[in-house]
């Protein structure tokens, strides 16, 4: 018997220790068999250290992306052109915060603490998606982010709903349900601009021109240069390769762009009848690596703002903890459980 909390705080030492263990091989075989049979791995199961480390890295990066991703869009909340658009944008930014929380919870089941993850984000030791290091220059960027950035995220995340690690897969199911609204509001926003005045149409086109290539980079480096891909596929953390998902996204976007009355900024983009897919131009990977290294237009700004928000929220966390301590002292010994809890 063990408490459920034990697997969160002490998961690694209790179940994932690499010490000499006569059962080690048997555990590895059981893990391999479970993954091969498409069963889910749950927090307290034995798992290889490298599998655990890969998941922590990926889920943390995913969580960080969600909360850093609030910034470029929040930038436009006070300047939304109507109350309707403002309410939508606030709901969307709140969703991104929620997605971050689902993902931090999933990461914690692997034996890391939330503070540790936030520390690593704030000190630059863990990354977030490089897409959020681009600025949102006009209102149309809010539309382009919803359509393209959230669209790319959905293409990436739908297969993650079948990821071999249970808590990550379950978080993705919730996230994907909510992302659909994000993408549609962005598309609708762009459509309104595209069908508006010539200035509005130009603004929409400019946003798409700037966000298209960074969105394609969201799928990560090409398969032959992706260092983690093969192992993640073998573990069924990933179900499709970066290039496969990127291709799927391009094929989805081309007709959507046509319906918007906007063009995609790629002269080499054309239908390939023989292969039944679109060919597209070469991606500038130098830019991708450069932004990832910290040299994007907004890297510094995003991290500075994140650290500041965390520091400025300290008094709220302290006040809540003080209130809880005072309340607990006053009610010592008294039943404090929720009322009306019947047998489930």
């Amino acid at each position: 018997m063990a408490t459920a909390a034990a697997h969160r705080t002490a998961g690694a030492p209790a179940y994932g220790a690499p010490h000499a263990d006569p059962d080690g091989d048997a555990r590895q075989r059981a893990f391999d068999a479970a993954v091969a049979a498409d069963e889910r791995v749950e927090p307290r199961d034995w798992m290889p250290d490298a599998y655990r480390a890969t998941l922590v890295r990926q889920i943390a990066q995913h969580a960080h992306s969600e909360i850093i991703g609030m910034q470029p869009e929040a930038n436009w909340i006070t300047r939304a052109p109507s109350l309707r658009r403002k309410a939508i944008l606030m709901a969307k930014v709140q969703d991104e915060a929620g997605h971050g929380l689902y993902l931090y919870s999933a990461a914690e089941t692997l034996g890391v603490s939330r503070d540790e993850l936030l520390d690593k984000l704030h000190s630059g030791r863990q990354k977030y998606s490089s897409i959020f290091n681009y600025p949102t220059l006009t209102w149309a960027d809010v539309g382009a982010i919803g359509w393209l950035v959230d669209g790319a995220a959905i293409t990436n995340q739908v297969p993650l709903c079948r990821c071999s690690y249970g808590p990550y897969a379950r978080a993705m199911v919730r996230v994907c349900k909510e992302e659909s609204f994000h993408q549609r509001q962005g598309y609708e926003l762009l459509l309104a601009l595209s069908r508006g005045t010539s200035e509005q149409h130009a603004m929409a086109q400019d946003a798409v021109d700037r966000w298209w290539w960074p969105s394609l980079m969201m799928f990560g480096p090409p398969d032959d240069a992706s260092q983690h891909s093969a192992q993640s596929m073998a573990w069924k953390i990933k179900r499709h390769s970066n290039d496969e998902l990127r291709q799927r996204f391009v094929d989805i976007c081309v007709p959507q762009a046509e319906s918007l009355g906007l063009t995609l900024p790629d002269p080499d983009l054309k239908w390939n009848e023989e292969h039944g897919r679109h060919d597209f131009g070469a991606i500038d990977w130098t830019e991708f690596w450069d932004v990832l290294k910290g040299n994007g237009p907004c890297n510094e700004q995003r991290l500075t703002q994140r650290r500041r928000a965390h520091d400025e929220g300290a008094w709220v966390r302290e006040a809540a903890a003080a209130h809880a301590a005072k309340h607990a002292a006053k009610h010592t010994g008294k039943h404090t459980g929720p009322t009306g809890v019947e047998q489930a």
């Binding site: 018997m1 408490t3 459920a4």
Partner: peptide, 10 residues
């Protein structure tokens, strides 16, 4: 509270 849950073995 997560700490209040008792679980069977993994």
């Amino acid at each position: 509270p997560s700490a209040a849950i008792t679980a069977s073995s993994p």
